[in-house]
Write a protein that binds this DNA or RNA. Structure first.
Length: 426
RNA sequence: GGAGGAGUGGCAGAGCUGGUUUAAUGCACCGGUCUUGAAAACCGACGUACCUUAACGGGUACCGGGGGUUCGAAUCCCUCCUCCUCCGCCA
């Protein structure tokens, strides 16, 4: 959620930013409407406060009159206050309505994109920020996609998952399961080395948390909802971990806050079916290690660079061909100011698979969460929040299986062998 | 799931038979006096949000959340949430 003060002070820049983000032309008037409603709110508040001040004053006098036994005078004042109260009640009711409308409009405005975000409408327009410098691996026509390799080596079973739950819920087994566990431990250890505190968060979150990071109301249909208890299955560890500090006023000295956590992630992925979603390419449940940072506004972009370097180091250690994209205005998420995606090359499918998304949300999430900090002068400011996948497992597994297939079996990268405790899957 | 108890400012903790509470008091934190320096002692300041003001300041709301009674609610009523104790169930 954008800050009202910011909107008032930067209206033109915001309108330009919203256009970059492909915000609907016909909805741009929301910005003016927000300012208008805020004006109404202020003016009504002023009137209302004055009325309440008078009512409070009279009530005190009534108390004094009762004590001194002047019943008749007290009664006449009581009537006067009763009249005042009618107006106050009406005023409070309209103020409430204005505030609700204002809040609704503010929630409808996406974050303003960083100046470096390229214009564009779709993923086609994303900027290749760092390309894979070498030749892409060519495994020839005999290369098998990961779902065929899985069957050959008995690594995971989608049909069994479908029998137990439904399509898109993979069941891993044998060395496939061990590979998952090895990757989780590897990623967590690497995050720890980079200074992130490990968190095991709840996997179901309440409405406040989902709103705090921006999943509600924008992406309601994408989360599984346990309606009996009104809890949401997390689509990413970003939600519970970022919300750890919701509603807090931090001390500046607490920065940087660096957290990481492994969780399964649940996504309904409603409506996405087709040729590109086979195997592990797109599933309803997958495992992910997430890194989250809460930062001083002046240091958040340096933090973003660090996070990119961290994710890049993981892919290097796994010896996977990768590239980094800077997402264009049309592809960047509602809440993000700047996002870099990491993609690995799947040599058997001959396509790039997204395995990480690293974003700076600036104050967008923290304003929703009222996550602030005090500076040296004890002034309060909104903090910046960032997060990134480091990394998302299902597609990493797909890439590893495909790229490392040989006639003898699937070779495990050296960095991962201490974790799998086997060097080859055959 | 059942019964009972409790949620007050960073922490502890009064108030809870409604009106000198503009929330006592202690601790912590901050500023000052004293001191070579520190401690102690003493003095002062010390919550959040919003409105208003050029500023000093003034005002409104907030005692877990929401609603109600009343001229007036931390205090009474309803409801929800959370925590504690006991019972039941359970990995």
């Amino acid at each position: 959620m954008l800050d009202l003060g910011f909107i008032r002070d930067n209206k033109e820049a915001l309108l330009t930013g919203l256009k970059t983000k492909n915000f609907k032309e016909e909805d741009l008037h929301i910005v003016d409407k927000v300012i208008e409603l805020d004006d109404q709110r202020k003016s009504l508040q002023t009137t209302l406060d004055a009325q309440k001040a008078e009512s409070n004053q009279l009530s005190k006098e009534i108390g004094d009159l009762f004590k001194t036994g002047k019943q008749a005078e007290a009664q006449s004042l009581k009537d006067k206050v009763a009249g005042l109260k009618i107006g106050i009640k009406e005023g409070e009711s309209s103020l409430q309505t204005i505030k609700e409308n204002l809040e609704e409009l503010l929630l409808a405005l996406p974050n303003m994109p960083h100046p470096s975000v390229p214009p564009g409408n779709s993923e086609e327009d994303n900027e290749v920020f760092k390309d894979w410098g070498e030749d892409l691996p060519d495994l020839g026509e005999s290369a098998k996609p990961h779902w065929e390799l899985a069957t050959k080596y008995n690594l995971f079973d989608l049909q069994l998952g479908a029998k137990i739950s439904g399509a898109g819920f993979p069941l891993y087994r044998g060395k496939g399961a061990k590979l998952q566990r090895a990757l989780i431990n590897f990623f967590l250890d690497e995050a720890e080395k980079a200074g992130y505190e490990e968190i095991i968060p709840p996997l179901l979150v309440n409405e406040d948390s989902a709103r705090g990071t921006g999943q509600l109301p924008d992406k309601e249909g994408q989360m599984y909802h346990a309606t009996a208890d009104d809890l949401y299955l997390i689509p990413t560890a970003e939600v519970p971990i970022t919300n750890i500090h919701r509603g807090e006023i931090l001390d500046e000295a607490q920065f940087p806050i660096k957290l990481c956590g492994y969780t399964p992630c649940f996504r309904r992925e409603a409506g996405s079916y087709g040729a590109h979603v086979r195997g592990l390419n797109r599933v309803h449940q997958f495992d992910k290690i997430e890194i989250v940072r809460i930062e001083h506004p002046e240091k958040s972009y340096a933090a973003l660079d660090e996070m990119l370097a961290h994710v890049e180091s993981l892919l290097k250690k796994l010896e996977l061909p990768y590239r980094i994209l800077r997402l264009c205005g049309g592809d960047i998420s509602f809440a993000s100011a700047l996002t870099f995606d990491f993609e690995i090359y799947s040599a058997a499918q001959k396509r790039w698979l997204e395995v990480s998304s690293v974003s700076n949300f600036e104050t967008f999430q923290s304003n929703r969460m009222k996550l602030r900090f005090k500076d040296a002068n004890k002034k309060k400011h909104l903090a910046h929040t960032l997060n990134g996948s480091a990394l998302a497992l299902a597609r990493i597994v797909a890439g590893l299986l495909e790229n490392n297939q040989t006639e003898d079996g699937i070779v495990i990268p050296k960095a991962l062998q201490p974790y799998t405790r086997f060097e080859i899957i055959n």
